[in-house]
Design a protein around this nucleic acid. Structure first.
Lengths: 151, 151
DNA sequence: CGGGCATAATTGACACGTCAATCAGCTTGG
DNA sequence: CCAAGCTGATTGACGTGTCAATTATGCCCG
């Protein structure tokens, strides 16, 4: 069987659904977090730091942990530092390096926001799907990711 | 049975997978389109206009067609107009109104990019999934969307 | 040792998205 | 008819993301 060159109408519809629904879900979650003064990026960084030993991480480790490009992280840390959520320290073992450290204000805000955020995940995502759909979603995401990685 | 307040570890893992994988897929597609000089937003607008009668649409219709907020569309059309991909015309039946019209350069670029883009959808998305997964993906997106709408 | 390359991180320029404010023109009820 | 309010669209400010260039340091090999 030859590989079809183009997607069918139905495949296209699902692709667009995938993109648009993903956008809507992210937007909704971003709006909810925003009410507590955090962007999704802020939350991601605070979560990673709060789980790190000493609540600090090298910039590059943090970047791979959250799956961001270096420069994106650098810009984001700059904004978070300005707001007092984190601070930066020099790395003792590598003078090129920098460490991001969770600041008290950042920790407090994170703790304040975390439970409501988890509830929102349940409300927006988990409660929308049957257990079978949830599992299928996990498998689909894994398949997409794997496929992307091998290109 | 009482509703659990927080997601389980597994549910949380799937949520994060959903967000991160979606981001990776969109980023990959955006990078491919970018090689031809289009953002995903550009493509969305060009597609909608190219399918519209007279290749023109009122701003507000265009906004609902692509599912964007007005101001987002307005900014985007401004950028596309500057590049000569579209132009704006006044609306005859409503003096407040504006119409976006596909410009020749926009049509040409869209036609040039469309087939490669469709191939990319197949490569990145359709080919990564089994037919069953694809169908499941469609159902999952529908469920999420429906759930969001009824909040 | 030291020149050249790799790596850590930042920066600047620019595209993008959201929010709140604004402006102009339509519409309607007293 | 006209003031009040609604609607279509734009704007400015700001946070965010990407790309390319830059800075500074580490490291390796000749």
């Amino acid at each position: 069987m030859t590989t079809r060159r183009f997607p069918t109408q139905e495949e296209l519809r699902i692709w667009r659904d995938f993109i648009e629904t993903g956008e809507k879900v992210r937007t909704e979650m971003a709006a909810r977090l925003q009410k507590d003064g955090l962007s999704t990026g802020d939350y991601t960084v605070l979560l990673a730091l709060s789980e790190a030993p000493g609540q600090r991480l090298r910039s590059s480790e943090l970047a791979t942990t959250v799956g961001w490009e270096r420069s994106r992280l650098s810009h984001h840390l700059g904004r978070m530092e300005k707001r007092g959520l984190i601070r930066r320290e020099e790395c003792l073992t590598d003078n090129r390096g920098a460490e991001a450290v969770l600041a008290p204000a950042g920790l407090e805000l994170f703790q304040q926001v975390n439970r409501p955020h988890l509830r929102d995940i349940r409300e927006i995502f988990v409660d929308a799907l049957t257990p079978a759909q949830l599992q299928a979603a996990g498998e689909i995401m894994a398949a997409l990711r794997e496929h992307l990685a091998r290109e």
